[in-house]
Structure formats: structure tokens, C-alpha cells
Nucleic acid binder design. Structure first.
Lengths: 254, 254
DNA sequence: CCATGTGAACCTTTTCACAGCG
DNA sequence: CGCTGTGAAAAGGTTCACATGG
């Protein structure tokens, strides 16, 4: 930490916009890469390019966190990594359970991006008795019967559901009853949860359908030509700035 | 198709908002479920509940497609399924290739939600020679060398990247050069592509980080109590309406 | 009489453009 | 003098509330 962890009296008022929160992990990833290459500082322009957004947006986002840059120079990489990590709550340890160890569950269990971000896979849970005891990614799979005790014993507050759609709501209910308050849902279902519980969903099929929509437009353009067919040009995917930010994720039953 | 495919003179002007497009797959899923239960019609209220959004939003969304409902009654399920499918371009066949057949790639290959939505896995591609010929989900894995010919021979315009981060850009370049114009990226990297190519990303780690942020707030609330700590109550996750809609997805290297 | 379809109000997010600081 | 930080404007999306039509 170059600038030292001054902890800042935090001019930062509360209420960081959701859209900004959703981009912080992007900046963090880009900053981590710079940090590994021992780059000391970055300008908003450079960092924005690395994160795939435009610089005005990035500066505005950072302004919600506080004034962490130096005019005429840029941002101190290490310091920003620290500030964003702290803001996202990644400086603490988050035990996570993954329920449903099919192809997807296994993929998630093996994902390396967890540990490096403060997430720890506390347990893998599956309803199939035949899976019990089998190690996946070095962690023995436990039976669903153990779900409640696992959650409680490990103080788990984040659960990942990678079960088939039919089992998702039931698993969700049990996770919530046992104390989980944040759920990442990969099953293609709408989960209903009580107030105070956060749900985010990832649905692959949805992402593909959105791509298909735009793909279809591209094809139609040549045909419809003439008149006002330009329109799609509005979607200037300018080589950067991906992550349309305003989206719905994608799913996957195991 | 109850109402028959009248094809409608389409009062519908062009330019459906991105946010609406992102929700169409959600409605489609809910409608498909209703269709399977042979439900003939739904009100905006019912369908909205099933899709996890509020009814005003749903009606506004549908208004961009045209007037497909009947006042005092609701929407014809079969007819809407058809209209939305057509709008999304799902009435045609979309051959897709998946590059990177690790845990995640295999999970995707096995995902059933594809075929039922007009997507067809045309080929599985991996750089590991040892994988070549091995069947995954009934489809033999082919070596990366074949990538260009596979794309061309099958007229593939949508590619899924499930490789490690380091290989993603290179794979992306080859896909684009071979003719792919839509990419779903699971690797935790920002891909740069020429104009006209669409990229969507899915990043698991990002989703978890967003959950962690809110989780941290919840914990802080009790401590910070007193003063103005309410604020998070604004996030009324009212048992439905998940999918904060304004987000950034999550990734996964194989 | 009911539920759709939609203008209008409202809120969020993005973009602009430049003052101000290092 | 360059780059950050930020008001103000613009764009985009959501919610309200009700006229409209089956």
C-alpha cells in the first residue's frame, strides 16, 4: 500500500449507486492485474480502457467512494485496490456453500477466482447419496441432510444454488431458514425469499437469447436496408465498453 | 398457437429498449411454463409475478412489441410465446460453438436449456490434444486447429468462450476472424472486438462480490444503528422482483 | 366492469464539459 | 499543464394513474 492505509475520515456519504457497485469488481480486477505488473499509478483513461468502460463513468464511480486520486497524475494502484476491496467487503472472509454438485457445481467448486477475492468454499452439498464423501476440487461432498448444520457451524451467509430448477426453491427455503441472507442462483427459476434476503441470478440461456436478438437484427439490416435501418449502429460496441451493464444474467441447472 | 400466427401488420416501430429485451427471455420462460400447464390466458399481474417483475413494467415492455393483449381479459399464452420467440429470433436455428471444454464448458454442453430455445451446440472445441475425440454430452470434442473450418462449415455466428483468461482474447480473435459476430464470454477478461461484434460476459466472481457488498451493509447496520442507518431498507427485495436488472454478470475460467 | 395500454411524473444512470488542484 | 472531481444536462428506465376498449 503505497499511500498507506490512512483509513480516510471518509468524506464518503452513504449510498453508492447500484450501477457503481456492479462495476467495482471490474475495476478491482483490472487494478489487480496492474498491481501484479508492479504498475504504481494509472490515469482514469488507462484504467477505464483496461476495465472496458469509459473514463468519465469511472471517475464518477470513484467520486462516490471519495477522492482517491491525484490531479495531474492519476490513481495509486495499491491504494485503490485496498479501498475498493474494503468497500466491497472483500477484506473479510466469506464462507460460501455450493448446493448441487453437477457439472456446473463442480465447475464452480474448481473456480480459482474465489479464494483470491475473500471467498472460501466452506462446503459442497448434493442430494445424491452416491455423491456423499466423494471429493470435488479437494472438498468432500456432503449430503443435503447436513445443510442446516453446515450453515450454522460455519456461519455461512452466502449460498450458491446450482441444482436443477425443480429443487431450487426448496433448497433456497432451507438455506434461508438456516440463516443464509445472500443467494446466487444458477437455476432457471424465480426464487421467492423473505425481505432482507438478496438474490442474484445467472442464467446462461437468457444471455444467449439476448445475443440472438441482436444477431437477428444484424442479419435483418442488410435485408431491410434502404430506409432507416441504421438504428442498430447505435449499439456502438466500440471495441471496449462491453458489459451492457443494464442486464439480466443467465442460468443453468446441473 | 391459439390466435394463429396472424403475423400482425406490426404497429411495432423499431427500437425495443435494451432493458426490455433483457427481460423478454424471462417472460418467455414463465409463459412456456404456463403453456405446458395448458393455461390459455394470463393477466399482466399473474405473468409478472411468475417472471419476478412488477406488472406495470411488464405491460410497458409488451407495449413495445405491440398490442398483444385483450382488455378486461389478459394475454393469450400461446400467442405471446410465439410473438416473443419471434422477436428474440428464436424461431430460427442458431448453431453455437463452445470453446474450452473444462468443467464449465462441459456444464454448458450438457445444459438442456439450449435446444429448447433454438440453440444447437454445433461443436465443442478445446486446445488440449488429449481431449480431441472424447465425447462430452454426446458430442466429440474437436481440436482448436479445426476452429475456422467448423465456424465456416456450420455457419456459426455465436460463440461461447469458456477458456482460461489467458487464452480468451486469442480465441476471440480467431472466432471473429472466422465470422462469429456474437460472443458470450465466461473468461474473466475484457475482450476487445471490432465494431459490429457483440460481447456479453458472465462472471461468477463479480456476482459474488456484489452480494458481499450488500451482505456487509446488512452486518454494518446493526453496529452503525442509531442515526441514518435505515438506507439499506430501500433495497426492498419484496419477495419477488429479483434480478436487479441493472447489473454486470459473472465469469469463470475452465 | 376489468385489465390493457400509455402519457406523464419520477428516479437512476450516463455523458458532457470544465473548474480547480497538484 | 494535465488529470481529477463534479455540477449540470441528457438519456434511459421505472412507476403512477387513468383513459380506453373489449
Amino acid at each position: 500500500m503505497a499511500t498507506g492505509r490512512t483509513h480516510r475520515p471518509a468524506t464518503r456519504s452513504r449510498g453508492i449507486p447500484e450501477a457503481t457497485v456492479a462495476r467495482l469488481p471490474l475495476y478491482l480486477r483490472a487494478l489487480t492485474a496492474l498491481s501484479e505488473r508492479s504498475v504504481p499509478t494509472v490515469s482514469s483513461e488507462e484504467l477505464a480502457a483496461a476495465a472496458g468502460v469509459n473514463s468519465a463513468k469511472l471517475r464518477k464511480d470513484f467520486s462516490y467512494l471519495g477522492s482517491y486520486g491525484t490531479r495531474g497524475v492519476g490513481y495509486d494502484v495499491e491504494y485503490l485496490v485496498y479501498q475498493i476491496s474494503r468497500e466491497l467487503g472483500l477484506t473479510q472472509d466469506w464462507p460460501v456453500v455450493i448446493v448441487g454438485i453437477g457439472n456446473l457445481g463442480a465447475a464452480l467448486a474448481n473456480y480459482g477466482g474465489f479464494a483470491s477475492r475473500g471467498f472460501r468454499v466452506a462446503a459442497l452439498i448434493d442430494a445424491d447419496p452416491a455423491m456423499a464423501g466423494k471429493p470435488v476440487a479437494g472438498i468432500p461432498v456432503q449430503h443435503t441432510d447436513e445443510l442446516e448444520s453446515i450453515i450454522r457451524d460455519n456461519g455461512v451467509s452466502i449460498g450458491v444454488i446450482a441444482t436443477p430448477a425443480g429443487a431450487a426453491q426448496q433448497v433456497c427455503d432451507r438455506l434461508v431458514a438456516a440463516g443464509v441472507t445472500s443467494i446466487l442462483n444458477f437455476a432457471p427459476t424465480v426464487l421467492s425469499v423473505p425481505d432482507g434476503v438478496d438474490v442474484r441470478k445467472v442464467d446462461l440461456s437468457i444471455e444467449l437469447q439476448i445475443l440472438a436478438f441482436h444477431e437477428q437484427r444484424k442479419a435483418g439490416e442488410e435485408a431491410t436496408a434502404g430506409a432507416a435501418a441504421v438504428q442498430a449502429a447505435a449499439r456502438e460496441e466500440t471495441s471496449t465498453d462491453q458489459g451492457p451493464d443494464g442486464d439480466v444474467p443467465a442460468v443453468m441447472p446441473a
